[in-house]
Amino acid sequence: MTLRQDLLAVLQDAEEPLTVDRLAAATGRPATTVRFHLDRLLRDDAIVAAPVGGPGPGRPRLAYTAHGRMDPTGARDFDLLAQALAAALADDPDGPRKATAAGAVLGADRADPAADPLDDLLDVLMEAGFSPAVSGGDRIRLRRCPFLEAARAHPAVTCAVHRGLMQGVLDAPRTGTTGGAGWQLAALEAFVDGDHCVARVRRPAHRAELRAP
């Protein structure tokens, strides 16, 4: 386990709040290191801290207690969830449409209303792990798929989510002068040459080419 998990386990087993010194002794780690990880646990809302001792000079001593709820620090396997949901939708005749609609909601939520729609699309794809690269004006090569296993097993559903995500970004309302109206995802070609995907966008006549991220 990591030190953060060790600290949380010690606090969950403790019958009373514990100070940094006691936690350092319990884990065999320096107090400064323990304090750093306790601050992270506090930010994650996994533990609570309360002052102990009477008033005096300097910063008050704190004692820590674990919340009595699920550990938020553990490993997550989002790909397992993606494969399960893709498999469920693959058995639904209306699955691809539902997947596209869900992706569009995600895209609209991730969009930056102050950004140019195409620049915004590249930023969202980069943050989502697609490693996009502009290729040939309106072509975007997607050099990674963050849900590769699910996409290979259920491409109709997984790619539908991705199409919806991209169109959702393009359709998002814009507060600037560039506007997003008219931009369309013309196609999403999966596993071109077996190693990447290609998104093609249809641009208004007045618009210049995409910029590289």
Rank of each mutant, 00 (worst) to 15 (best):
12 Q>L: 06
13 D>N: 08
14 A>S: 15
15 E>V: 07
15 E>S: 13
19 T>Y: 00
20 V>C: 06
20 V>F: 03
21 D>L: 10
23 L>K: 12
26 A>K: 14
27 T>S: 13
29 R>K: 08
29 R>L: 03
30 P>Q: 08
30 P>S: 01
30 P>H: 03
33 T>A: 12
33 T>M: 02
36 F>S: 03
37 H>L: 10
37 H>G: 01
38 L>M: 13
38 L>G: 02
40 R>W: 04
40 R>C: 01
43 R>W: 01
44 D>Y: 01
45 D>I: 01
45 D>S: 14
48 V>L: 06
48 V>H: 08
48 V>P: 00
49 A>Y: 02
50 A>R: 15
50 A>Q: 14
51 P>K: 05
52 V>C: 06
58 G>C: 05
59 R>L: 09
60 P>Q: 10
63 A>T: 08
63 A>V: 05
63 A>N: 03
64 Y>R: 07
65 T>F: 00
68 G>N: 14
68 G>S: 09
69 R>E: 15
69 R>Y: 07
69 R>V: 08
70 M>N: 04
71 D>N: 13
72 P>S: 11
72 P>N: 10
72 P>L: 07
77 D>T: 04
78 F>K: 00
80 L>R: 15
80 L>T: 15
81 L>I: 15
81 L>P: 03
82 A>M: 10
82 A>C: 08
82 A>N: 10
83 Q>C: 00
85 L>M: 10
88 A>I: 00
88 A>M: 08
88 A>W: 00
89 L>I: 01
89 L>Y: 07
89 L>A: 15
90 A>N: 11
90 A>D: 15
93 P>T: 14
94 D>Y: 07
94 D>R: 12
95 G>Q: 05
95 G>T: 05
95 G>S: 09
96 P>A: 05
96 P>S: 10
97 R>Q: 12
97 R>I: 03
98 K>R: 15
98 K>T: 11
98 K>Y: 00
99 A>Q: 11
99 A>S: 09
99 A>I: 04
100 T>V: 01
103 G>R: 05
106 L>Q: 12
106 L>R: 06
106 L>E: 10
107 G>P: 06
107 G>N: 08
